[in-house]
Design a protein around this nucleic acid. Structure first.
Lengths: 339, 339
DNA sequence: CATAATATCAGTAACGTTACCGGTAATGAT
DNA sequence: ATCATTACCGGTAACGTTACTGATATTATG
């Protein structure tokens, strides 16, 4: 290792202060039975030596950590950032601190295995509870509280928060259909996530409900990234009988559609209409009509739920459903046959 | 505590696998001297029991953690997010994982003390090294590598990355002056940070250099938040002899100026010109002319430096100076006396 | 066949902290 | 003055892991 010097421990403090290790520990933890004088003296020594307690050792021994863990596959995209903001907000109002854990990239390791590994790592070791974003597993081998955000499968026994994906999708479609669109393309999300499937169902059902045909050609797959938005958009827009509108199942992919549209010299909403899902901050600037799922608030709510569980306050509901809402901006326009 | 059940330990694994604890440990750490059969058997048991190693205990005993800590006062503003993206990127390319530590809000605790506390907490306990953003202290009582981003004081012996704040400020001012502006307002940043002072110096010196007077009325203070941008902007724009341009020492405050301008019915750049500093993503949408300090890249570089230090690869330079660059958009226009 | 080398494992001692128990001195009650 | 109570503190045993040492069987060597 680079440094040889061992850092100062509680034992060093005890020795120079002339007291026992347990006394220092009691001072550190604000226990009552320690004389005022010794307390201030020990505190002085601590200051002098620049001592600070070793988290790992403390966690190992004691129970309460006042720390909440947030596990995300990646933190560098708008959805994740919004979640973090919400979590951060709830944390700021609480007695807890926050530890965000990320491997930087999903592709760096295996999937389910690593997820479980990280969770147990964080949870068992140093935190009082964990929030997991878009988890693939639905059960965890853990004796600590866990709250999931947008889980793969909603499981009535495990606390989770997710948006009303189906209803939101329905709303988006009804808006488009109301505008006169009949050929509407769909770009799907990560198939392993329930949210993606619910949105697809909404797309299909809205079509059926209004007696419109479901053209499988118009349904392309993606994985919620800009890249697949570009690819999906291209596939759709180069179709012989090009759709007059595209419903991208998240805003990130919608941004990809913007890019490919520009590249193809197509204008939104003049050449085709576009609606997204999520309402990430960028969408506002882009003027993208989308379904708001209040991501920030989802993070906020999940954190509050977790804190309640940690403090053993019973939850009214195990799963919180965030009501989505259509946000109309200017990426869509009325379509009439005659053109 | 809420759960009574102790989680499975290495001892449980050892017992059910019929081997010793040390053998399990060796399997876990991929040591060579363990028979293939026993290895697979132990692995099976681990899988069955859903065992996962306790980070705290491991950290306490062994040295390498493959974990980098990032300490931020708050994570919910664009600057912080850009840093995180950069760090995240470097992390993704490395063998390390990332642990972001935040108290959610600076105001939650004292300042210098808590900073040191967090750093030691993270560093001594579970990480191989730490990146600190906008740290107030310049020396740490730590035997682990630390890299600072935008530190209070640049200290030649402590690795840090910061932008060429002075030069950037000079560039912004010269641009404004070149446009014919003579009365230029300035909104300052957090005074305890060196970056803020360097930007102010740049403002003053640019004025002096071109023989323009420095009107102290035109210099108002802020703390890098939108709120103080609004306040500072209001102060400046309600002056009798209103400035024809404002230089906000970061984009966040410039956004505040946009807000107050709209409220006052003033148009940018028609009624006054505005330039910011940072080039956060929002500025692009706002059309704000600003000084890019490549925040993301600063995070990226800091992380790379830290990894080098951890791996004992010598640094060419202890401090990395990121070259700033003027980004002209449409928040400024030429000013002529006659109007 | 004897000896040396190797492969495989078990046992023990830490790591730095807190929980728990018990001991001493000082104070109060009778 | 004696006993009970209280205030304060020290010692010891964990927590779950890995490093280290050394023991035992197995194989190779001559």
């Amino acid at each position: 290792m680079s440094q040889e010097k061992r850092s100062t421990t509680i034992r060093d403090v005890a020795k120079t202060a002339g007291v026992s290790v347990s006394t220092v520990s009691r001072v550190l933890n604000g226990k009552i039975d320690v004389a005022k004088e010794t307390k201030t003296h020990v505190l002085e020594v601590i200051e002098d030596l620049g001592y600070s307690t070793n988290l790992a050792a403390r966690s190992m021994r004691s129970q309460k950590k006042n720390l909440i863990g947030l596990i995300m596959p990646d933190i560098a995209y708008p959805y994740a950032i919004e979640i973090m903001k919400g979590v951060n907000q709830a944390i700021a109002e609480s007695e807890f601190d926050l530890l965000v854990y990320t491997s930087g990239d999903v592709r760096k390791r295996g999937h389910v295995t690593s997820e479980q590994k990280y969770i147990t790592l964080l949870a068992k070791s140093i935190s009082d509870g964990v929030i997991v974003v878009a988890p693939v597993a639905s059960e965890y081998n853990i004796d600590k509280p866990i709250v999931s955000i947008d889980p793969v499968m909603s499981h009535p026994n495990y606390p989770a928060v997710h948006a009303t994906n189906y209803q939101g999708s329905l709303d988006a479609m009804e808006y488009l259909i109301g505008l006169g669109h009949k050929r509407i393309g769909f770009i799907g999300g990560r198939v392993e996530l329930e949210s993606a499937n619910r949105r697809l169902s909404g797309y299909r059902d809205a079509l059926k409900k209004t007696g419109l045909p479901v053209d499988e050609q118009l349904i392309v797959s993606g994985d919620y990234t800009t890249k697949t938005g570009i690819e999906g958009g291209q596939k759709l827009l180069t179709l012989e009988d090009r759709p007059t509108a595209i419903f991208a199942s998240n805003d990130q992919m919608a941004m990809g559609v913007y890019q490919i549209a520009e590249k193809m010299g197509l204008s939104i909403p003049n050449d085709f209409s576009l609606v997204g899902f999520d309402n990430i901050p960028e969408s506002k600037y882009l003027g993208l009509t989308t379904i708001d799922q209040f991501i920030l608030r989802m993070g906020y709510t999940a954190t509050q739920m977790l804190i309640k569980i940690i403090n053993e306050i019973p939850l009214e509901d195990q799963t919180f459903r965030m009501k989505t809402q259509l946000v109309v901006r200017n990426s869509c326009r009325r379509y009439s046959e005659v053109h």
